[in-house]
């Protein structure tokens, strides 16, 4: 069933129409639309709504969130790409933004050349989880066991091309191991499968996994960030065993290519100012992701690096949609 978005996307055309006249005076003169490629209620949606609310206060103008779920976020990204580059349509994107174009040739945008990055907002690592019955307690043991049994074990993910999937493909390619990918629909179903031992191991988002780790149902072997996570300081980073391995799931704002730099700068400053407040810290602590603000340039570099890195992983693993 299609998940519905109530704050509809009708207004998109509004932004298109109204924008032409709005170049002259101070930005923003009209409603600003934030296109989000997820359904209402998810973490990404909530984060974007919170920031929209804050930007509205900062600029004294309404910022509305248009939910545009569909095609894993590609529908939303394509919409932002096609919008007029005047600052009245911006997108809130997450890691899949730089993964989808490599995965699916029909996805018609380039994350680097078609967009002007505004700011990264937050980031979170994935964690490699194993069911206790698998009988390994450390990453080294896991690597040994997987390498000794190529193609014997299954691993799960929240869906094809999700960061959970690519985390594992990257690791398997680095250690030259083989394992069969079983995609599930979303993190919740993936965790269910892991706990009930349908699949012995998988990467999943750190925050959703923590309660199951604390209950002893799953064993964390390693986190995907370059450094250890503050949430689970006893768990090593994959990079400690496999040098150079790094993957973090992030989210942030982008605008269509050609958006005036002064508008991008104004938005960046407003977002960063909000992220520095105690209120924001409290909220992100609840959601469980780390505030990770950046300048437009640095965010662009992250997007570009990921695009290149994941493109390579995907083509090497031979993952592709038709």
């Amino acid at each position: 069933m299609k998940v519905a978005s109530l704050v509809t996307s009708i207004c998109l055309s509004l932004a298109l129409l109204s924008s032409a006249s709005a170049q002259d005076a101070k930005y923003p003169k009209d409603i600003v639309h934030i296109v989000v490629g997820s359904s209402p209620g998810g973490t990404a949606d909530t984060v974007s709504r919170l920031i929209a609310d804050q930007l509205g206060k900062t600029f004294g103008q309404t910022f509305v969130v248009d939910n545009m779920p569909g095609a894993g976020g590609a529908l939303a990204a394509t919409t932002v790409k096609a919008a007029a580059p005047d600052g009245y349509t911006i997108g809130f994107v997450f890691s899949s933004f730089s993964i989808l174009p490599s995965l699916n040739p029909k996805v018609n945008y380039n994350p680097v050349t078609d967009f002007a990055p505004i700011a990264k907002v937050s980031s979170a690592p994935n964690v490699l989880l194993v069911n206790p019955s698998f009988g390994v307690k450390t990453l080294a043991e896991w690597i040994e066991k997987v390498k000794a049994n190529p193609g014997k074990f299954d691993y799960g993910s929240g869906g094809i091309g999700y960061s959970q999937h690519l985390s594992m493909e990257m690791l398997l390619q680095a250690i030259k191991g083989e394992s069969v990918h079983i995609p599930f629909t979303g993190s919740g179903n993936l965790l269910a499968a892991l706990i009930s031992d349908q699949v012995p191991f998988a990467f999943d988002t750190l925050t959703t996994a923590v309660p199951h780790i604390n209950a002893g149902e799953l064993i964390p072997l390693a986190v995907t960030s370059a450094q250890r996570s503050e949430v689970l300081p006893q768990v090593p980073a994959v990079a400690e065993q496999v040098p150079g391995y790094e993957l973090t799931a992030w989210n942030g704002f982008v605008a269509p290519k050609g958006t005036p730099p002064e508008i991008v700068k104004a938005l960046n400053e407003a977002i960063l100012a909000y992220l520095a407040t105690d209120k924001a810290k409290e909220f992100f602590a609840k959601v469980g992701t780390k505030i990770d603000p950046s300048t437009p340039d640095k965010f662009g570099a992250v997007i570009g690096d990921d695009y290149e890195k994941f493109g390579k992983v995907i083509s090497e693993a031979g993952i592709k949609a038709q």
Binding site: G41, G42, T43, T208, V210, P211, K286
Partner: peptide
């Protein structure tokens, strides 16, 4: 999602 926003991690 609502529980997570309330700072409650649903789970065991």
């Amino acid at each position: 999602g609502a529980m997570i926003l309330q700072g409650i991690q649903p789970g065991p």
